[in-house]
């Protein structure tokens, strides 16, 4: 028997767990090998100590607590996997759907540049659409342009709307036309004080 084979069998040998044949071989080896004999003294001491020493043992309270703890963790894992499923699949799908809706909506929207500035004819645009697309800022510049092209018949003006434009009230949208030539001229000059004075007449 090799020394290494003997040493690894020593703990079992001293605990009486080796077969009769193995036990015979080991004792024979220990009688003839001084280094294994020396080693065997330590191993025997170790086996005796382990036998005597009693590690702290948990009580029945601990053993009864295992099932509830495991069940809790299973439940937590289940909840987490549900949440992960939402994060992984539902939220990206919702985001993709939102992007798609925005894209489709923007494709169907008329381009305000082409429609309202290239061939500007305010009389042909329904009031409801004007109110949908015009902000005060863009309306101001278009009214300037209008007055430059004006022949005196095409434009109409609404003083209420003009008031909003002068006040730069971004919350209001142009919803009507102007028909006061004097005010249109004042708009083209960007003379706000004069416009207000004219409106107050």
């Amino acid at each position: 028997m090799k020394c290494s084979d003997v040493v690894i069998m020593l703990p079992e040998y001293f605990r009486g767990k080796t077969s009769e044949a193995s036990s015979g071989n080991i004792s024979e080896h220990l009688n003839t090998c001084s280094s294994c004999k020396a080693e065997s003294i330590h191993v025997q001491a170790m086996v005796d100590l382990i036998r005597k020493e009693k590690a702290w043992e948990p009580d029945s309270f601990y053993w009864n607590s295992i099932i509830p703890k495991v069940q809790d963790r299973i439940e937590q894992r289940r909840n987490r996997s549900r949440f992960e499923w939402i994060i992984r699949f539902i939220m990206p799908a919702a985001a993709a759907a939102s992007v798609l809706i925005i894209l489709l909506t923007s494709l169907n929207m008329p381009n305000s540049d082409n429609r309202y500035t290239d061939n500007l004819n305010l009389n042909s645009i329904p009031v409801s659409e004007l109110s949908e697309y015009y902000t005060v800022q863009s309306a101001f510049s278009e009214f300037n342009q209008l007055s430059l092209d004006s022949s005196g018949n095409e434009e109409s003006a609404d003083t209420e709307i003009l008031k909003e434009i002068v006040a730069q009230d971004d919350n209001n949208i142009v919803s009507s036309y102007f028909d006061d030539k004097e005010i249109l001229d004042l708009i083209s000059q960007e003379n706000e004080t004069a416009i207000v004075a004219a409106l107050q007449k």
């Binding site: 290494s4 040493v7 690894i8 330590h42 170790m46």
Partner: peptide
């Protein structure tokens, strides 16, 4: 086996 061999030697040595 080598791991076990080493472990037995170390533990018995340390306990001693």
């Amino acid at each position: 086996k080598a791991n076990y061999f080493q472990a037995v030697k170390k533990i018995s040595g340390m306990m001693r």
